[in-house]
């Protein structure tokens, strides 16, 4: 896939989380990519040059590439448990 598009997507996520503080934004960006990206997209950006990414996105990708499985950082990534009805993310 077009690596520039993946970089742009990662940076966009990081930029929009920046307001919650650097460390939290790194975690939230990692959590977001972990929950929503397909394995081939993840594999490609893990193999990419970190310096091509913004600081927050680069650190987030580094965490994931090293096998991190971050806990949910926003309620959008806290999905329903098997028997739960509360959450929905209907588009």
């Amino acid at each position: 896939m077009d690596i520039n598009k993946l970089r742009r997507m990662a940076d966009q996520i990081a930029t929009n989380f920046a307001a919650i503080g650097h460390d939290n934004a790194v975690l939230a960006t990692a959590d977001h990519i972990n929950k929503f990206w397909d394995p081939r997209m993840k594999a490609q950006i893990f193999a990419d040059d970190r310096s091509a990414l913004s600081a927050i996105a680069g650190l987030a990708i580094e965490k994931l590439a090293r096998g991190a499985d971050p806990a949910p950082q926003t309620r959008a990534t806290q999905f329903n448990k098997v028997d739960e009805v509360g959450h929905s993310d209907a588009g």
């Binding site: 926003t74 309620r75 959008a76 509360g86 959450h87 929905s88 993310d89 209907a90 588009g91």
Partner: peptide, 12 residues
Amino acid sequence: TGYGLSTTFGTS
């Protein structure tokens, strides 16, 4: 809408 309302209200 899914993302935004889930984050704020817990359901979208």
